[in-house]
Write a protein that binds this DNA or RNA. Structure first.
Lengths: 223, 223
DNA sequence: TGTTATATAACGGTTTTCCGTTAACTAAAA
DNA sequence: TTTTAGTTAACGGAAAACCGTTATATAACA
C-alpha cells in the first residue's frame, strides 16, 4: 500500500536555508529532496532540462530572477505545479498575486520549520496551506474589506495592502532612484500628479521623505 | 574518554533558519542545541537569566537589537564567548568590527550548512573559521592594502570598505531619514560639511540620490 | 619630506522635494 | 442614487538636495 515518496525541489538564494529545509525534511520518511537552486535562473534551467518534482519550495526574494518571475515562466509553459512559497515578509498583494498563479502554499520565513512539512503535504493534495501569520493577515484582510479603517495605522505600521496599484507603481520608481520628472515621463502623467502621489505615500506610510519610502519598498520586497 | 557535548544557542530572526540549523546540527553527535532566540532582546534576556552555552550562533541582521549590539552587550559584561556570526552579505568593515569584539567565526548565509558545523568545532577551540566567500574577501582586502585601486569600481559595485568611518556614520543617518540639517546638528559639524559628505557618498557609491544611498545602506545592513 | 587620505568648510546656482490645499473626473460600492 | 476610492491635476512657497569647485588642517604614510 505504500506509495512513492513526495519529491521536492527547493529554491532559495540562501544556501543555508536550503540545507536547513533539507535537514528538516530528512526526518520525514515520505518526502524526498530531489534538487535545489540558489537562484531563479538555475531553477528555470532545471525545468528547461525537463526535470520534475512533486512540490516546489520557492523563495520569492531572489536576485535577478525572483520567485514571482519563475512562477510566470512556469505559467507560460503550463508547468504550474504544487508550490510552497517562502517570503520574508507578509504582503497581501503578493499573496494575491501568487494565488492567481495557482500557488496553494504560503509560509513566512519566520515560521517554524514544521510548517513546511505541513504545507508540502497540503499542496500535494491540491489543498491550501498558509502559515499562521499569513492566516491572520488573510482574515484581517477579509474583515477589513467593508470597514472604513483600512487606511489607519496598525500596531506594526501601515500594511502595503492599503496602497493602491498606482501608488505601488510610483513607489517602485521612486525606490529605483527616479526623479519626479522621470516618473511623470515614464507614466505619461503630470509632474504635479506624481508629486501628489509621493505626498500621499509619505503620509500613508508615515515616513519623513523619499528615503523612508525607499526603505519601505525594500522591506516589502518591491525592489 | 568521551567529553561533554558542545552546547549551542542560535539567534536569528528567521525561525526557519533556526530550525534548519537545528536540523543540520542534529546529525552531529557532539553538538547539542540548548536554546534559541528570534531577536536580540530575547537573546540578551537569555544571558541575563544566567543561561550559558559553549558556542553562540549569531545573526547580525536582526530588528531592534542587532547581532553587533548583542556583542557589545556581552563585551560590557565580560561575557564574550566562542561565537559564529551569520550575515547575509560580506562586509569587511563588519568582519573587522566583530573580530575586534572577539568573534572568531564568520559565515555568509549563502554558504552550505556544513560550514556551521566546521565553524562551531573551530571556535570552541579558540580557532578562527571563515566561510569560503569571507576568506576570499579577506585575502582580497589584504592584497589591496597597499594598492591604489582601493576606491575603484569592482565588477559588483564599490565595496563598503572604501567608505570612511565618517562617511558610514553619515550614511547611516541619511538612511535613518535625517535631513542634512539634522545630521549637522547631531554631529556638531556644519551643514556644508554634511553636504560635502553626502556628495562624496553619491559619487563613491555611484548612485543618483539619497534613495540610492538608502538602498546601499540596507544592502550592507547599516540600518 | 613630500604625498595621500580624511574631515572640515564655504558658496552660488539649479533642481527637486516637501507641504497644504483644492478640485475635477471616473468607476465601483452602498 | 448618493457615497466613496482612486487617479488625475494645479499652485505657491519653503526647505532640502544636488552640483562643481575650492580650500584648510591634520594625521599617517612612503
Amino acid at each position: 500500500m505504500k506509495s512513492r515518496k513526495i519529491s521536492v525541489h527547493i529554491a532559495d538564494d540562501h544556501k543555508i536555508i536550503i540545507d536547513g529545509i533539507i535537514a528538516v525534511l530528512e526526518d520525514e520518511e515520505d518526502i524526498d529532496v530531489v534538487g535545489f537552486s540558489t537562484d531563479g535562473t538555475e531553477l528555470i534551467n532545471w525545468y528547461k532540462n525537463n526535470n520534475k518534482c512533486d512540490v516546489l519550495i520557492l523563495d520569492i526574494n531572489m536576485p535577478e530572477i525572483s520567485g514571482v518571475d519563475v512562477l510566470y515562466f512556469l505559467k507560460q509553459r503550463n508547468l504550474i505545479q504544487p508550490t510552497v512559497v517562502l517570503s520574508s515578509y507578509d504582503d497581501i498583494k503578493l499573496i494575491k498575486e501568487v494565488l492567481k498563479l495557482g500557488v496553494k502554499g504560503f509560509i513566512a520565513k519566520r515560521c517554524a520549520g514544521k510548517h513546511i512539512v505541513n504545507a508540502i503535504r497540503a499542496v500535494i493534495h491540491e489543498e491550501s496551506y498558509f502559515g499562521p501569520s499569513i492566516q491572520e493577515l488573510i482574515v484581517k484582510n477579509f474583515s477589513n474589506k467593508t470597514s472604513k479603517v483600512n487606511n489607519e495605522i496598525s500596531q506594526d505600521g501601515i500594511h502595503i495592502s492599503s496602497l493602491t496599484d498606482r501608488e505601488i507603481e510610483i513607489l517602485k520608481l521612486i525606490a529605483d532612484q527616479k526623479s519626479t520628472r522621470e516618473i511623470a515621463n515614464a507614466l505619461f502623467i503630470s509632474v504635479n500628479t506624481v508629486e501628489t502621489h509621493r505626498k500621499n505615500l509619505i503620509k500613508k506610510i508615515q515616513v519623513k521623505n523619499v528615503v523612508g519610502l525607499a526603505l519601505y519598498a525594500v522591506k516589502h520586497e518591491l525592489v
